[in-house]
Every structure is written in C-alpha cells, then in structure tokens.
Simulated scan of single mutants.
Amino acid sequence: MQHVLTLIAPAGQLPAPLIARVRSALVTLGANAGSADWLAAEEAADLPFDGLAPEQAQAAAARVFEGAPVDSIAQPAEGRRKRLLIADMDSTIVTSETLDELAAYAGLKERVAEITRRSMNGEIDFATALRERVAMLKGLALAALEATWADTHLMPGATALVRTMVANGAHCALASGGFTWFTSRVAEKVGFTSHHANLLEDDGSSLTGTVAEPVFDRHAKLTTLKQLAAELGLPLTDTLAVGDGANDLDMLAAAGLGVAYHAKPVVAAAARVRVDHADLRALLFAQGYRAAEFVA
C-alpha cells in the first residue's frame, strides 16, 4: 500500500484493541487498510493504508485515542528510512536548556529561563534574545560550563536514534541555537556525525558576555539542512528533522519528515507530525525500524 500509519506509545501502552479501532476508523472513512505489523510489542505498530491523505489518517487516529498516550505518524510508505537527520539539542537531544542551566551559576536562571521560554515559543526574536541572555553572563567563570555539562542528561531514546541511523548509513547532525561547547560533547557522547551551533566567547578564564556573529538561528538551521542534503546528494524528501522550539520551525517544514518533539505550543500547532508521548525512539519506529534493529 502507498501509505503507512505508525502508532507509537510508551512501552506497554499500545493495546491491540486500540489498533483495531483505528483500523476500523480508517475503513469507515473509505480507506483500504491492511493488518497491523508490530514493530515493538504493545509499543509501536504500522497500519498500511490507501485511499486517505496522511492528515486524514492522523486525524482519524486522534479521535480514536480519546486522550490515550499514543502518537501517530502517517506518511508515504516509500522512502521512510531517511539518510540525513538534523536534530535540535536543548529539550530535544538533552533534557534541559543548557543556557538556562548555565545561568544558574550566575544566580540568573529564572530571568534567563523566562527569556528562553518566550523565544522558544516565538514571542521574541531568537538572535536578540540570545545576545541578551549571553550578555547577562559576562564574567562567569568557565568552570560553570563544566559544572553545567556534568549535570546535563540525554533525552530517553537519543542514543538509540542516532546510533541506529548512523549504523544504517545516515548522516546525523546536531543543529543547535545553543553553543558548540555543549554540542561538541553531546555529539561525541551520542554519536552524531557533525554538530553546528553558536560560539560562546571567553577570555580564557571567564565569559565575555558575547557570542560570535552571525548568530546560528532558525535560518541557519534551515541552511544547514539544505547544505548537508546537497553535499550528500540527497533530496529533502530523504531528510528527517526534529526539534521543539520556534527556531526549529523552518527546518521542520522543509524536511521530508519534520517532527515536533514534546514541543512548545506554537511549534506543536504548526507541525504536521508531533510526538507528544513517546521518547525519541519514536523517530526510528516512524522510519519502519523494529525494536530488534535498534543499536544500543
């Protein structure tokens, strides 16, 4: 069949009767729906279908869920496995906003976090907000970077996502509005092929309160997606992007599969594909990988 609807839930929370109800809903709307193919028992399953647009299939599934913690991703069956991943870092690959956590060492976490929140929800310009927050950290000792890194944790499923895709020949890139000081470490720990972010400037002992220009913003993320695809000889349909903030919207819209992951309201509202409940392994299930194929 030409399309596939992937249903994904936290482990053990996808019962077979729910999948049967989704299939019935698709048929009622005039679709030709095949049998469920389990990718992971009670966690992820594919439903092949024809006769409906992906958006219609997702909407039908959402009506069946009735608040159950299940994500759905409908897309063409051909070309599901992507050969380029572009991922945001903060609140996507790692659980925290590293700049906010760094600001805690200057006693400014709440002030900086409020600016971050507004920026990530598209309420204020990203580059302006970044410069403002960095300026507030002028004079902060570089030891605060090490302390912040020591308390930075990976998002569940991040390592499996990246290492599985790399093992299958994909280029995986971090594209972050944060800083190379952190992206370089995350890239090495998780297994990213490359990383792209802002350069936080210092005088050798403390932060200068400045970031190198130009700021790596939403436009730079989109440019990175397009440049890497061109360098790899890939059409954009062969790419996957994931992020949670307003500065991710352009790359999510341009990628073959753009996923808003546990996203801010403005991003969740704009994205066609959302993952609200499952962890980052959902992006592997969306590509048709079975749990047995995941690289730990």
Rank of each mutant, 00 (worst) to 15 (best):
F285N: 00
V295A: 13
G258D: 08
Y105I: 01
R274F: 11
Q287T: 08
E146L: 01
M251Y: 14
A59Y: 11
Q75W: 07
I115W: 07
M1V: 03
N247L: 14
P76C: 07
T180Q: 06
A104D: 10
N32W: 06
T224R: 13
E43M: 03
E114F: 08
A20S: 13
R63P: 05
A271F: 01
A263N: 12
A135P: 04
A59L: 05
V215L: 02
F216P: 10
P235M: 09
T128W: 04
E43H: 15
K82L: 03
Y105P: 01
V267F: 00
K138R: 13
P54G: 12
A11N: 13
S91T: 03
A255K: 07
V22G: 08
H196D: 08
M89H: 07
D90K: 06
A20Y: 03
N247T: 10
A103M: 08
R117M: 06
A16F: 09
R63G: 11
E101F: 00
E293W: 05
S119G: 10
A135L: 01
A150F: 04
A61N: 06
A270Q: 15
L174E: 01
A40L: 06
A143T: 14
A77E: 10
V162E: 04
E146Q: 12
A104G: 11
D88K: 15
E55T: 15
M1N: 04
A268N: 01
A246R: 12
P15R: 06
D46G: 02
D279G: 04
M251R: 08
D151S: 15
V215W: 04
R290I: 00
T6G: 00
E213Q: 14
K221S: 09
L207N: 06
M1P: 11
E146M: 05
L99P: 09
M120E: 05
G178T: 04
A286C: 01
R23Q: 11
A41D: 14
A144N: 06
A187W: 03
A44K: 08
D125P: 14
V295Y: 03
R133C: 04
A62L: 07
T193G: 09
H219V: 09
T237S: 15
E43G: 04
L249G: 07
A246N: 08
E188L: 01
Q2S: 15
V267S: 11
H153F: 00
S119L: 00
Y105R: 12
L236Y: 10
A36L: 01
I124Y: 00
E188I: 05
A254M: 05
A197Q: 02
A143V: 05
A44N: 13
D248W: 04
R111D: 12
S176A: 09
A173W: 10
H219M: 00
Q2D: 12
F294S: 15
E231L: 03
L142W: 00
A61Q: 03
D248P: 10
E114P: 15
D276A: 07
V27F: 08
A291P: 00
G243I: 11
P10W: 02
Q287G: 15
A62E: 14
T237A: 12
H171D: 14
A77F: 08
E231N: 14
D37S: 10
R63T: 06
S35D: 11
A40N: 14
T28L: 02
Y289M: 15
A31L: 09
L222Y: 15
D100M: 00
G204S: 11
T28I: 01
R274Q: 13
N247Q: 07
S206F: 08
